[in-house]
Structures are given as C-alpha cells and as structure tokens.
Design a protein around this nucleic acid. Sequence first.
RNA 1: GCGGAAGUAGCUCAAUUGGUAGAGCGAUAGCCUUCCAAGCUAUAGGUUGCGGGUUCGAGACCCGUCUUCCGCUCCA
Length: 507
Amino acid sequence: MNTTQTPATGSPAATLQDIIAHAKEYGFVFPSSEIYDGLQAVYDYGQNGVELKNNLKTLWWKAMTQLHDNRDGGPVVGIDASIFMHPLTWKASGHVDSFNDPMIDNRDSKKRYRADQLLELKAEAYANAGDEAKSTALLQEMGRLLGDNDLEGVRNLIIAEGIKDPVSGTDNWTEVRQFNLMFSTQVGSLAEDASLIYLRPETAQGIFVNFLNVQKTGRMKIPFGIAQIGKAFRNEIVARQFTFRMREFEQMEMQFFVRPGTEMKWYETWRDTRMKFHQAIGLPAEKLKFHIHEKLAHYANAAVDIEYKFPFGFREMEGIHSRTDFDLKAHQELSRKKQQYFDNDIDPATGKPFGNYVPYVVETSVGADRLFLAVFCNAFTKEVVGEGDQQKERTYLKLHPALAPIKAAIFPLVRKDGLPEKAEEIMKSLRFEFRVIMEERDAIGKRYTRQDLIGTPFCIAVDYQTLEDDTVTVRYRDTTEQIRIPISELKAHIGQEVSMERLLEKM
RNA sequence: GCGGAAGUAGCUCAAUUGGUAGAGCGAUAGCCUUCCAAGCUAUAGGUUGCGGGUUCGAGACCCGUCUUCCGCUCCA
C-alpha cells in the first residue's frame, strides 16, 4: 500500500503520506499544538486550508439554502446553534445512556467486556445457586460504585469476586475505562455551583430544539429544512487516518421535516441530491458510492452513506438518515413542550386537513473535514512531464477554480522597467472580486510552480508587451497553456471560471 | 485496545564499530534576468520528539513516554 506504483495514466499513485506531507508543507493542515508534540486526532487548518474549507462550507450552504426555496419542494433555512446545550438534550437524544459503558479488557485473551455485565452475570450465578441475598448485595455494591463513578472500585470488585475471563480463564484485567462518547465540562464560574454539561457530539440536536422557533418565526410550512454548520466533539476510541477521524470536527447538517409517511420519498430525493453535489464539485463518480446501512441506529428507519475512495479505501463522507420522529418525540416527552405541527393541507383520503403531528425527519450530514480531505486527496496530482533528459515530476492541486484558496497570481516577468508597478495595478483592480496575490521574486518558472502546489488556477504574467498594448498572458494550471487577453477582460474571464455559480448550476 | 515500523534543519535524507551533527532542495536579503522549480552572492535555520539510564564519550545502545504511519479490532 505504501509503495509508489505507476498506474496506466502514467502518474505515480499518491499515498496518504504524500498527501499529509503536502497538506502540511503548503499550509493546508497542521497537527494541533505541534510545538508541544501535538494532540492526538486534533488538527489545525493553515492559511490555505482555511480558504479551501471555507469555500466548501460556503458552497454547501448555498447549495442547501439558496437552491431550495418555497417554490422548490421545500425551502431550507439556516441556523447557528450553540455548542453548549442543556444536559437533558443528550438524555433525550439517547447519547447519555447509550454511550457510557464501563469497559474492561482481559490482557491474556485481548477481549473486551462491559464491566457491569461481568458483575451482573456473577450476581445471576449467585441467584441461581440460591443465594439471593448475596446476588442483591453485589448488584447494590456495583450500582453504588458506578453511581460514584468509582471505576477502580469496580475493577477491585471484579477481582474480589474472582471473576475470570471465560476465554482465557484468567483475571489479568486492565483498569476499567469509561468509553465516554461526549466531552464534558462545567458551566458556572464558581466551582461549587458549577454543573456538568457536554460539548455537543452532533449538531443535529441544536436544530431539533429550535424546530418550532424556526417554523413559527419563519412561517415555515412542512416540508422544510434547517441547515447548520458547526463544530462537534467526540471521544473516538481509535482516532486515525489523518483528519478523517478527529475529536473536534465540523459538521454540515440539514434536517428536513416532513409529513409522516412521506419520509422515504424525501430520503431518496435527498440521497440523490447530495450525490449530485459531490460530483458537481469535482469528485469523480467512480470514487463515490452509496453504502446502505444494514444495522440501523436507534433513531433511524433507513440510512445510507455516501462513501469516497480515500487512499485508505472507501470510507463514509456523508450520511443520509431517515430519523423518523424519534428526536422530536423524545424532546417533546422530556421537555413537556409540544413539538408538533398543524398541517392545514387537505388529506385527499379524508377530505380534511392532515392536522397535528410530530414531523418525521430526513437528515443529511456531511463532515466538513472529510469533504475537505476527499477534495484534497482528489486534487493532489503528480504527473511526469517532458521527455528524455527533460523529464521531471510535476505536482499540483487540481482543485476546481471555485474552491482554490487563491484564484489568481500576478507575476511581472522581470523586476524592473515598470513591470512590477503594472502588475500591482492589475492586482489592485482584481482584488475586489477575488483573492489574488502578486509575486515578483525568483524566476518565473519557480513562481508558477509555487502556485501549482497550492492549486491556484490562473497565473497572470505581465511582460513588455503589456506596457505597449495592455494585454497579459493567462496561464492555466492544469495544462500550463497560456492565452493572451486584454487586462480589461481579466475580471470577466477569470470571474466566470472561479465563480461558485458555475458549480451550483450543476447541482 | 493489540501487533509492526518510524521520529535528525521548513522538506527529503546522510552521519563507518559509540568519537566535533552534514548535504540537496526550500526559505530570507541583494544582484542578474523576456515565460515553467536549473544564473551569481550572502544569511538564517538543529539541546537529533521528550525524560531517564549505560559510557571517558550517545543521533546511534537500554528503559519509559509522546506523536505519526501500516495491519487487525472498534466505531450509535
């Protein structure tokens, strides 16, 4: 896997290591707090990475909100909910109860067990042997220890009870660990008054708890959607593969509220809409596929992933879930606030309005960091160019111009005779429209290459002819070919290609 | 979590048996220059991931630790 192969295209295959090295070397992704040896599974975006990521987020936002209005099946509006939420939120969502298990490993068998289940089995054995008192006492002791979060006590109890691993037959246990999905912190400036809250493990709940706020204040009619981009936090058991699985990550989620019974139609619609998005931004169809979930989460009645072929294989990039009315119903029960919608549309079956109901929800959830990684991997290109002795390797980022961090670089051919001044004039006229930079140092070939490495789609060269007739050459990144056009046409010419509109039109 | 590999300048990598840490590229400043990383000059940049040990002496050997990659495992 880590050997460099030469596929039929003549380009050496890019490995994840090449991509990680490139991402760091050219200011896209840095390991977090690297000067302190980094922090596992946490990364920072650099000066170019943040531009690319922002472009992806903007594009998603526009694709969701601008392209879906009330004339188009169902509008989508956005919100920005806070990361802190009332602790009961996570009780309602199921995150507190489902992901708080005390785990213990046996060092000899390498098997992992739930510590509470081991003790329950032992208690059951006592009960079966007729010693009800001992069984009850054990369960009570376990309950007390778990209640106090005394994990060492739980381990001691397991050993004291002589519980052995059924596989290895030994009691060579590791310490008991709580595999908390969620990060917790305290709210309250005084320690004794502080209460425990969580950093959200998904952005979806911020949408659910605001469902009625948006519906009422926006006079929204079902079906409609609420979109949100925001950070979420999860303690991953195994954090691996660069930015693919991070502890702090950014989600781009949209919850689409529908009339019960219509959810499968909308599920299919959104599944196809989202696939089109990924293809429109330049991810090739052969590197994308659907993966249907066989095992469904506690809240879903249908689920499919859109997977991208990363250098380490096909992996989930986006999930489309039919979440039923699970979340709104759970919030309704726990908060005792109705999460219902009165549907005035006439039901053709009865001739009466559909009436009150808790809406069903179709969710699309894509990881901004995973989308970034997919786009970055796909753009990373190594090509052998030239012939014979002139042959050399060329590396560049084949990013769609609308996604590139910098849209155009302006180079005076030489640093004299007024060319730098002319170049600066052009730069200043273009920078109101898009991100441009000017470079005058070093040989022009080197300047072209530097821009190739960060994916700048256009390089504008100012030469002596420019001084005579106000034309410049525009060099295309992917082909290195050049055309000569008047300065007055630059804005329109480049603007056309770097515009997000061209991408949105394809969706 | 288990097993394997690695960590030396911004990057890629050297450094014989344990004996003064180097090169290329890149970067920066200046000069030169009419188009694809290739001219000239100068400069900066390293307690060899971190901590301990062995030794007269450790980049190298030993222990621990952190980080990364690969394979398995896990992932509502």
